[in-house]
Design a protein around this nucleic acid. Structure first.
Lengths: 218, 218, 218, 218
DNA sequence: CATGAATGAGTATTCATTCAT
DNA sequence: AATGAATGAATACTCATTCAT
């Protein structure tokens, strides 16, 4: 029935892989439940017992998988960073694609990451824990915020090379464009308990790209 | 009866006002202690007992002044909003002052509010409590974030009227300028446990104003 | 009705002393309950919740009085040491009292301390915690064991001076006599879960004193 | 089937005995690991999982060998008693050996058992568990403490018969001598977290034998 | 026969809030 | 009006023991 590998002679191997898969399943369930709990009320209000219950495991099992609440939280954050980094597009600057379209695609991916993957809410919790877990916040800032800017900058560099943008300090440029977009995509979301993106988001983002092109466009 | 200082004869009114002033003093001490505690480790980690101790009052007195931890936190946030709103300048667009200088002054006031008045840290805590105290976050967003944009927009309108800026949608314009500035002033501070402003902040802000003037300047 | 002190003008003082007495009462109840619990199953098996229940207080109150389980245990041990040290007689070497009688009285006091004040059971627990609380064990050894030997030695010195005993190394002598007595008074009690003293204890102690007098008597 | 080493042809008996020996090896490893764990922090602090890990077996295997933590502890204690009883010399009263030397050899064996075989530490743990495992403590008292006295008494009887000691109640005599020796050998060790024997132990033991000979020597 | 993952019942400790005085 | 002691509910974490494979 199950697709367990080497069933011929090594039932031990079968056992091991069975166990691993069960374990992986539980680990995933825990991460999911924990994410939910942490995002809902922040670090302090998330209770290990609740997380265990939501993941349908005992607290002891929870602790077998993650040595402490801190470690569990760190795992969730790391998980999110990985997911997000895999999500961002790497080749949006294809030959025939116009400047505006390239920037638009980048912004769309960013919006998806912030809203559909609930990065905004994770940011809330991470920011809240800055005083008690500065290393984590730092990791998120580097892997989540700065990494995004580096990607954008690289993209901008290509556009400059292609002659689509004036030659300029693309590092600051990335921050300018990013700052404007965040104003619509992140800032209101941080303060709102609803998860939806604003209704006229696309128009707002267009206005940011417009502004950027007025500064640096050819 | 007691040797209380400047009370003249101890008439009832005098006693009452003395009591009131003592009460005000205690209230202020509590607010100060609470602010410190809340900003240090966030809402959950702040302990009412610690706050009372730091304010040199008993817990019972603390509860006489503020009905609950929530209420105390709300009071602190409100207090901060008031302080901040009083801080922002209202007449920076004097006759002889150039565009760049006007925007610069606005930005400086913003920087002062965010760093010297620890608004960045307060934002951290408020943002963290969005799921459990959405009204508070909303209040801060309206009184703190949007109000700032309204001020900026009003300023921009004056500049447009003066002919210093092209006629444009100043609402979006305010968000664009604000977004770029925040990128340097707020975003990194939210993720850092140190309270200092970045070293090259002035240059960064100038670059934002430059960008803005490239878009909308005459 | 109650003997509270300055009831005349300072109801505050009355309040303070009332509080203090209530507090003392609770503290005593906690110590009693804790002693019982610790002696019954050792340090690890004693549960703070059980102790609180037995003392008719909440666990929070328990922790107001004693900052931790360790601290509570230490308080009990210290308490026992004080009690015991106050119990040992200081003037048993009166003029007309014979050697044998002097030693006998000392031994009797020792027996009372070990059995009636359950010092044997406390020793069990303290000894058990040597690896985890060496300082405590050390304190008990110094204040409980060595102090007893010093008392005995002083007594022996007086007896030597009086000419009742040969001149000898009374330090080793005290250990010899003490060792023999302990063999009957402490050693079997350490291994038994019943609290009673052996039936023929008096005769056994006499035999120890006999032996001692054979060595050092005149 | 498997490439197991010195098994000749893999007949059933050979396999069975191989299994038995593997089992014995594991049992021994468990006992060793358990002993270490129990002696280090006492019964309660020793964790079955740690013991299993230290013995390189799974917890399930551990439980196959010993039905419970209690049973494992009992096995260790029993093991220790056996070891110790085999250790004590049985023929130290050879023809030409003097009284003092005989007693000295007995004491030396006792010291070795208490220190080199960590009997002092085991006593600590056993004593600690008296309230919860009285039968065990009883067994140790009988097989460890009393048995030693019986051996000593037998020895003393021989010495009396040989005319080396006065005729006397050798039962009490054994306790007297034993008590004095223990005072130096066991008592301080019970209260100390270091495993070493006191520096001047030999001299102290000599002084005990001296005292004994003064009482009962010829 | 051996395993490692799983568990339920505990454990010490904390905290917002109340109340007798 | 002000106090400090008191509390009940909660929280992170542990451990002896079992069980499916």
């Amino acid at each position: 029935m199950s697709g367990i590998g080497q069933l011929g002679g090594g039932c031990i191997l079968g056992l091991a892989s069975y166990r691993r898969s069960v374990s992986e399943t539980k680990r995933a369930a825990i991460l999911k439940a924990a994410r939910e709990n942490f995002l809902n009320g922040g670090y302090s209000r998330a209770a290990m017992a609740d997380i265990a219950r939501d993941a349908d495991v005992s607290t002891a099992t929870l602790y077998k998988h993650f040595a402490s609440k801190d470690a569990l939280f760190a795992a969730i954050v790391e998980d999110a960073c990985t997911t997000i980094n895999n999500l961002m597009p790497t080749d949006i600057k294809g030959q025939g694609v116009g400047v505006r379209e390239v920037l638009r695609r980048f912004a769309d991916a960013y919006v998806e990451q912030q809203f559909d993957h609930r990065m905004n809410e994770l940011l809330r919790v991470v920011i809240a824990e800055v005083p008690t877990a500065p290393h984590l916040a730092n990791a998120v800032y580097n892997d989540g915020v700065l990494a995004r800017y580096e990607q954008l900058r690289t993209t901008l560099d290509v556009l400059v090379e292609r002659g689509d943008l004036k030659s300029h300090n693309t590092h600051d440029g990335a921050l300018h464009l990013g700052g404007m977009v965040k104003e619509f995509v992140v800032w209101p979301a941080l303060f709102s308990s609803r998860f939806e993106k604003p209704a006229d988001l696309d128009a707002k983002i267009d206005s940011c790209i417009d502004a950027y092109l007025k500064i640096y466009g050819n």
